[in-house]
Simulated assay, not measured.
Amino acid sequence: MTKTTCPDVLTQARTALRDIVPGLVALVRRIPDAHSGSVGTWTVGDVAAHLSHVFRFDTDAIAGRPVPEAVVTSEGMAEVNAKALTEDGERAPAALADRISALAKEFDDVASRPRPGSADWLQGVRLPPSAVACHLLVECLIHGHDIAGAIGHPWSIPRHHALLAVEGGVLPLISALPPTAFVDQEAGPFRARIALHLRGGGSTVMVFDRGSLALDPAGAGDVDAHISADPAALMLVFIGRRGIGAPLLGGKLAAWGLRPWKLARMLTVIKAP
């Protein structure tokens, strides 16, 4: 029997984006009131406009064009996003839907013929084009969830898309960015080794050390606790869109280990950009 070669991560990410963008565009077009609330202080129109900005800078990164100057922390990205939203006055759902559709086509075209080597991303970080594409996938999945919630429309995040987003986008970003990027620097000292097991995927150990986060894929040494996670539930919990209680009760997350109390503390320390 001939062994089938699995497509590379960039190809998988392009396929996933082509799968979800039509539904995302339809969702934006369906927004009844762009000024209604969505996430934090953002309106649902702000969310859609922001998503178009992410398509723009991720496309530019793969194409080798300049990207915004940014410090990739929660505070740094809030500043960059606020500036972009202030400069972009478009909030009409139909116009934003058309913009996202056009940008998605441009992204796929650029990603079909990436420049050799790594892409220059935000904060001067160099990423493989696959990680840039998976970052865009994360943004589409999360902000699709935000828009759908704001307008009372269903939005599902398939496990295989979420797994690709986490393994191909989130974890490479944690490894590439400074170790302080994903940690709340005002949360106080915290040290822990947490083994993360992604259902349907692989495992890694998250190493927290007094304001820093690093990954240990080999998982050498003892760990304080383990998490077995459905990738979609993990994304929504880690990015603050959902509390941990319902996923635990529903079996989407499971935790165990010698020092399980460190898991609760970890959730107060993680601060996604």
Rank of each mutant, 00 (worst) to 15 (best):
A133I: 00
P128G: 14
P172Y: 04
D120W: 10
A195R: 08
W155K: 03
E186V: 12
E167A: 11
T180D: 15
G188Q: 02
Q185G: 15
S175W: 06
E186N: 15
A176Q: 07
F190A: 01
T204Q: 02
S203T: 13
I147T: 05
P129R: 04
A165P: 00
G152A: 03
H197P: 02
L137A: 05
I174R: 01
A192Y: 08
A181P: 12
P172C: 11
V138W: 07
H143N: 06
L198R: 08
P189R: 13
W155R: 08
V170W: 09
P172D: 12
Q123M: 15
A148R: 02
S156T: 13
C134V: 01
V132G: 10
A165E: 07
Q123A: 15
S156F: 08
H135I: 07
L171V: 05
P154Y: 11
G168N: 06
G124N: 14
W155N: 06
L122D: 12
G188T: 01
L163H: 02
G144A: 02
P179G: 00
L173H: 11
A181D: 06
A162S: 10
F182D: 13
G202P: 00
H161V: 03
V205H: 00
P128D: 15
A176P: 10
L171A: 09
A133M: 05
L137Y: 05
A133G: 12
T180Q: 15
A150V: 08
F190P: 01
M206G: 06
L171F: 10
E139R: 04
P178Q: 03
D120R: 09
A131M: 05
E186C: 13
H160K: 09
H153E: 15
S203G: 09
G144W: 03
I157R: 02
V132M: 09
H135L: 10
V166A: 03
H161C: 08
D184Q: 10
G188D: 13
G124P: 04
S156L: 13
D120T: 12
E186I: 08
E139N: 07
P154M: 02
H197Y: 11
H153P: 07
A131H: 00
L141Y: 05
D184I: 01
A187V: 04
G149H: 05
D146P: 05
G188I: 05
S130A: 15
I194A: 11
I157G: 12
L198I: 07
L171E: 13
A187N: 11
G169A: 02
I157K: 10
G202L: 11
R191V: 10
I151D: 14
E186Y: 08
V138S: 06
A192H: 03
I147H: 01
L122N: 08
P189D: 15
L122T: 10
L137N: 07
A162N: 11
V125Q: 08
G168W: 02
